[in-house]
């Protein structure tokens, strides 16, 4: 009855996700990342943090996949593991069909994949001018001479809305929003196929955040770059992303087109998450699903469904059998035994 969409038959879930129309630039399959928990004088390994457990998704050309979830759900670790900033425990990442392995030269990888970090104050080299920061990837790749790199810096500056006279300033002379523009320009320096953005607007005030979000949309329209957009802010993700994956305790619990996930969420966690966000409408009537308790420890995640300890719909089966991420009544994929009777929740 349910269509499994893991591993080789990933394409069978289908047409509704736009898979036939476009080819994925980035494919992530069964990604796992564990961190050891050590104890004692000799650092004995006493357990493992299951930060990312069997995560699979695809990002398509010219599109944005949003990875949302609360702190500690593994969304940032996923991004960093995909980029090989962290070595995965297991799993496969393919960039344009090519598998990235431990043997892949990071320099080659950096040509096609770039990263934008959350903190615009910590992610730029404070001793390099803005122009040098932006063209550092070119220098490392040995692309062009100094004059050509300078020309490229100017081009990138124009692209992200910075002025020529700002090229030779130091990062400390820029505001947070401007620094994030520099970070984005640097990520685009080598015209990558995929950019992973980890909470790129979380440190910015709303008036500046809107500028950066509009910039990202425009850049994507112009260059057809694919974004993996990691964020805890559900409103921002709705605005920017074509598809959305919701993570909970190291797992994707629901993934689908933006409209499906936001207008008709099927997983009880997605439903609770969406209902918890305050909307800027006074007196808005909302049926809030208030989740009980806190996130369980990822060192010792609950058996069966990881969400069951806080789930208002949990039954005996949820403790015994882990639900597969599969297509149910809707077109999106959802990991819940009771996703079919979703109407009772909304």
């Amino acid at each position: 009855m349910s269509v499994r969409t893991e591993g080789k038959d990933a394409g069978s879930g289908g047409d509704t996700l736009g898979r036939d129309a476009k080819t994925p630039v980035l494919q992530v399959e069964h990604l796992v990342k564990h961190f050891p928990v050590r104890k004692g004088v000799f650092g004995r390994r006493v357990g493992e943090v299951h930060a990312v457990s069997d995560v699979s998704f695809e990002v398509f050309k010219g599109q944005t996949l949003g990875l949302v979830g609360e702190s500690g759900c593994g969304k940032s670790t996923t991004g960093r593991t995909v980029m090989r900033l962290l070595e995965p425990t297991s799993g496969v990442v393919r960039l344009q069909g090519q598998e990235i392995t431990a043997a892949t030269n990071p320099r080659d990888l950096a040509r096609d994949m770039a990263f934008v970090f959350q903190d615009p104050f910590a992610s730029l080299n404070p001793r390099l001018t803005a122009a040098k920061n932006v063209t550092e990837p070119l220098r490392i790749q040995g692309a062009g001479d100094a004059a050509q790199r300078r020309a490229r810096a100017l081009e990138l500056f124009a692209h992200v809305g910075l002025r020529e006279d700002q090229l030779d300033r130091l990062p400390s002379e820029f505001s947070g929003g401007q620094r994030q523009r520099i970070g984005i320009a640097r990520a685009l320096a080598l015209s990558p196929k995929v950019v992973i953005l980890d909470e790129p607007v979380s440190a910015l005030d709303v008036s500046v955040q809107a500028q950066v979000l509009n910039l990202l949309k425009r850049l994507q329209a112009e260059t057809d770059v694919a974004f993996l957009f990691i964020s805890h802010d559900l409103s921002v993700v709705r605005h920017l992303c074509d598809r959305v994956a919701v993570m909970y305790l190291g797992k994707i619990v629901e993934i689908g087109d933006r409209a499906q996930v936001y207008d008709r969420p099927l997983h009880p966690y997605t439903q609770a998450l969406l209902s918890a966000v305050p909307v800027p409408v006074p007196g808005a009537r909302r049926n809030r699903i208030v989740l009980q308790g806190d996130l369980p420890s990822p060192v010792n995640p609950p058996k069966g469904c990881r969400f069951r300890t806080r789930c208002p719909k949990a039954q005996a089966i949820c403790a015994e059998k882990e639900p597969e991420l599969a297509s149910r009544t809707g077109a999106q994929l959802v990991a819940c035994h009771f996703a079919d009777d979703d109407r009772s929740m909304v």
Binding site: V206, S207, A210, Q211, L213, K217, D233, H239, V279
Partner: peptide, 22 residues
């Protein structure tokens, strides 16, 4: 402030940012 907010409850075609910075 109100028109530069991304919204959870509906699609916004384009955010209207406030130019500049505080």
């Amino acid at each position: 402030l109100l028109s530069c907010l991304p919204r959870l409850d509906r699609d916004v075609s384009e955010l209207i940012p406030i130019p500049g910075a505080p």
